[in-house]
Design a protein around this nucleic acid. Structure first.
Lengths: 159, 159
DNA sequence: CTAGGTCCTAAACCTAACTTTAGCTCAAGA
DNA sequence: TCTTGAGCTAAAGTTAGGTTTAGGACCTAG
């Protein structure tokens, strides 16, 4: 059971459904920042339950951990985030989401004019060459619709 | 320059913008099936330019290679695919796409009622628990919105 | 006070989707 | 003919996002 002095990693795992190893990994990626108790064990804030849940949700939308770290930067690390803090981050998040949906829809609509007709004439094809096909050198997995994991999403709220 | 006896891997790479190594990898994954000339070099059909382009496009939409292999099964391997072949595959492809967009939109709409209000009350949250959060055990990368790469997409056209 | 469950770290392993490297053969132009 | 580029194979490396394992340390109920 969690004491007033923060919650344990096991309890956090239980509450979020995440594996303990995943939470430790998220810490290594700078997504949560627990402190340590006298014995060297991690202690988390209760608010981290919500924080981790946000991470899981954002992942379902296909955002990478560095991107999510960007979103979370607009949450206060020190004090417990308020309703307003969450509302603000949500708005930022939503605009990225809208953009992603729009891209997908645009691509889908091109599909009808391009492969759909059976032509697939490459140099003119909008699907084949949607704005930025130059990028993507080097190794590693390919990323959905141009989102590179190293680009952290800007928080872009009031300075 | 390509002869009547099929095109080389280098030429195919040049025409599609793919790396030679990527094309060889796709062959290993069963996405193209070149034959060999007397000297043991790969020879491709000209139609494979289009086939590889389709692969690239489908990847931009976030489909995995096994899924794409599933789509391509409805193309004839032997003869050169016709306009109708491409139109048919496109229709199949489009329905998966529509489904994916719909999921994203549904999730986005839940966002407003859930994180947006600042509550993020976990057990009741539709975002936190969208239908199938049970799955996803074991290692490896996480996949976008429940699509597992090992499930090959059914061709589901006339038997 | 001790047994067992938690927790710790570091390192190795895993997958998808490729690239790089090493060492060799094939092909084509000067 | 010779040399240089293109191809070939097999094996190892890479990245993201974790999990598994090994070998200890902590801590809490009985």
């Amino acid at each position: 059971m969690p004491q007033s002095a923060g919650i344990s990693i096991g309890y956090l795992a239980e509450r979020t459904g995440l594996a303990v190893s995943a939470i430790r990994y998220y810490e290594a990626q700078g997504l949560v920042e627990p402190w340590r108790n006298a014995g060297g064990q991690r202690r988390f804030q209760r608010a981290d339950i919500r924080r981790l849940s946000f991470i899981m949700i954002a992942q379902q939308f296909g955002f990478s951990l560095p991107q999510i770290r960007g979103f979370l930067k607009s949450l206060p690390g020190s004090r417990t985030p308020t309703k307003d803090d969450w509302a603000r981050i949500s708005e930022n998040f939503r605009s990225h989401l809208d953009q992603r949906i729009e891209t997908l829809v645009k691509l889908r609509d091109n599909l009808d004019g391009c492969i759909g007709c059976g032509c697939l004439s490459l140099p003119n094809c909008k699907l084949y060459n949607p704005e930025d096909r130059a990028a993507q050198k080097g190794q590693g997995p390919r990323y959905l619709m141009g989102d590179r994991p190293e680009t952290e999403m800007a928080a872009e709220n009031d300075p």
